[in-house]
Design a protein around this nucleic acid. Structure first.
Lengths: 213, 213
DNA sequence: GTCTATACGTAGATAGAC
DNA sequence: GTCTATCTACGTATAGAC
């Protein structure tokens, strides 16, 4: 039932969510419990009955709130992508396109989200394959746009001469990838705040991109 | 049945494995098919019947080769961790402890494995939670040792003054994390060879660690 | 080693009363 | 909205013949 710490997909042990992201009442409660169970055991190893029990209802009642188990997952993944995209977009104002400051702000927002809301980030990044194409589509659009924001920032910085990398796409994958993994290892046992990690990783990203010192 | 490209957990579309890693005959064939199915759909969404059909046998026959579906996964994950650990250990000779060359060699080995054998790397890193503790134990030992190799390298490099980072653990998570993600995005559609990526990421790691230029 | 046949539990989802 | 009861399909695994 309980997975040993070293084998868990995520180290975090509390469900945290962006304020106001979820609906009130039972529908919201179901999403919270689904987030916890899907992140820990995976979508396919969590049954409707598991989810209902954790939510304090019977399995049949779940269907008055969501048409299927897949729709519950889809809603969580969509909300996760939206929160992520919103955070990145909010990081742009106040920074010049293609500046080192803009890249630092984007990385900080990316990593902060992964550290503050690791369950949400983990599900959004690891369970998308379980959705039918129609339910995955909104998240894919947001994901493509978030990615483009970061790639544009790297490319414009290269044009402006503030960065120095042989291949901008590889820099993107490295910077984005190290941030995504934070959702897996960050937990209450670590001595860092999410802000600590976001700042450190932003500095790493600037070094990696060869930003002028 | 088939997952759209943008939703797949891994971009690779061919099963590649270190030469000689798997047994010959039917037992090996089962592992190859399990690798493909588990990596694509996940352990819990692949049934014994799916696996048997892909292997060219009936589901009952599978039990003459492995005692359970979980044992098939355990074997794959163990082999993956062994291949990874062996590759890291083989990178050490010829480099001085704590040197920038050693970190570069370790990162190159790490990333090369993730790019050459993405299915194996992906499963080893994302399905460990599905194993009972007894079956996961051998892999956990190898994982801890691999991690320590990299952490020692960073710490000794700091002592020697060849690196410059405020927090070695955060550098470790960033360097290891960006490499692990390569298994997810690298595929035949990208214009890079695994060696290209390994070299680029090794350079990124040195920059990130503040290696003297 | 491989098969056919099957046991037995649990999965997702629905019917209809309250 | 929530329940009890239930449908039907599929899950892992086993029995026993060849």
């Amino acid at each position: 039932m309980t997975i040993p710490a070293e084998q868990r997909r995520i180290a975090a042990d509390e469900v945290r969510l962006p304020p106001g992201l979820l609906p009130d009442g039972r529908s919201g409660r179901i999403l919270v419990e689904a987030l916890r169970l899907f992140a820990e055991y995976g979508f396919h190893d969590t049954s409707i009955r598991d989810l209902a029990k954790a939510s304090g209802i019977r399995s049949a009642t779940l269907y008055t709130h969501y048409p299927s188990k897949e729709h519950v997952l889809a809603e969580l993944i969509r909300l996760g992508h939206e929160a992520h995209h919103t955070a990145l977009a909010a990081a742009l104002p106040g920074t010049a396109p293609g500046s080192a400051e803009r890249l630092a702000a984007l990385v900080r927002a990316h990593v902060l989200g992964c550290a503050r809301y690791p369950l949400l980030a983990s599900i959004a990044n690891s369970e998308l394959h379980a959705l039918s194409p129609g339910l995955a589509a909104p998240s894919l659009l947001l994901r493509a746009d978030s990615r483009q924001m970061m790639l544009d920032t790297i490319n414009l910085g290269l044009d402006a001469g503030v960065f120095d990398v042989p291949d901008p796409f590889l820099a993107l994958t490295a910077i984005a990838g190290m941030g995504i993994r934070v959702a897996n290892w960050y937990g209450s046992a670590t001595p860092y705040t999410p802000e600590d990690i976001a700042d450190s990783y932003a500095a790493f990203a600037l070094r990696l991109a060869g930003a002028r010192a």
